[in-house]
Amino acid sequence: LRQRHVACLARSERGLGFSIAGGKGSTPYRAGDAGIFVSRIAEGGAAHRAGTLQVGDRVLSINGVDVTEARHDHAVSLLTAASPTIALLLEREAGGP
Rank of each mutant, 00 (worst) to 15 (best):
94 A>Y: 12
78 L>P: 02
55 V>W: 04
24 K>G: 13
2 R>Y: 12
43 E>H: 11
19 S>P: 13
32 G>R: 07
75 A>S: 02
33 D>E: 15
37 F>W: 04
25 G>K: 03
45 G>W: 04
97 P>R: 10
86 I>T: 11
32 G>M: 07
88 L>S: 00
72 H>R: 10
53 L>Y: 03
17 G>P: 06
19 S>Y: 04
4 R>I: 08
24 K>C: 06
16 L>C: 10
43 E>L: 11
93 E>I: 08
36 I>T: 01
84 P>C: 07
73 D>Q: 08
46 A>L: 09
91 E>L: 03
54 Q>C: 06
5 H>L: 14
64 G>M: 05
12 S>H: 14
38 V>L: 04
22 G>P: 02
74 H>F: 14
16 L>H: 08
33 D>Q: 13
34 A>V: 11
20 I>T: 03
50 A>W: 05
76 V>N: 09
66 D>F: 01
13 E>Y: 07
71 R>L: 07
78 L>M: 11
14 R>F: 08
28 P>F: 10
61 S>C: 09
32 G>K: 07
31 A>M: 14
75 A>T: 05
28 P>G: 08
72 H>Q: 12
10 A>P: 09
80 T>P: 00
24 K>I: 12
7 A>E: 06
70 A>P: 03
60 L>G: 00
33 D>M: 10
85 T>A: 08
5 H>V: 15
65 V>E: 13
60 L>Y: 00
29 Y>P: 05
72 H>T: 06
61 S>K: 15
29 Y>H: 07
36 I>D: 03
44 G>Q: 09
92 R>F: 04
95 G>M: 11
92 R>L: 00
86 I>D: 01
52 T>I: 11
47 A>G: 08
79 L>I: 13
16 L>M: 12
29 Y>E: 07
43 E>P: 12
84 P>T: 10
32 G>A: 05
26 S>N: 12
48 H>W: 14
15 G>M: 05
31 A>Q: 15
91 E>Y: 03
62 I>E: 03
96 G>E: 14
86 I>Q: 03
13 E>L: 04
28 P>W: 07
93 E>P: 12
70 A>W: 04
2 R>C: 08
58 R>F: 02
2 R>G: 08
46 A>Q: 12
49 R>E: 11
30 R>I: 14
5 H>N: 06
88 L>T: 00
96 G>Q: 13
44 G>M: 06
29 Y>T: 04
15 G>E: 08
42 A>I: 14
28 P>C: 11
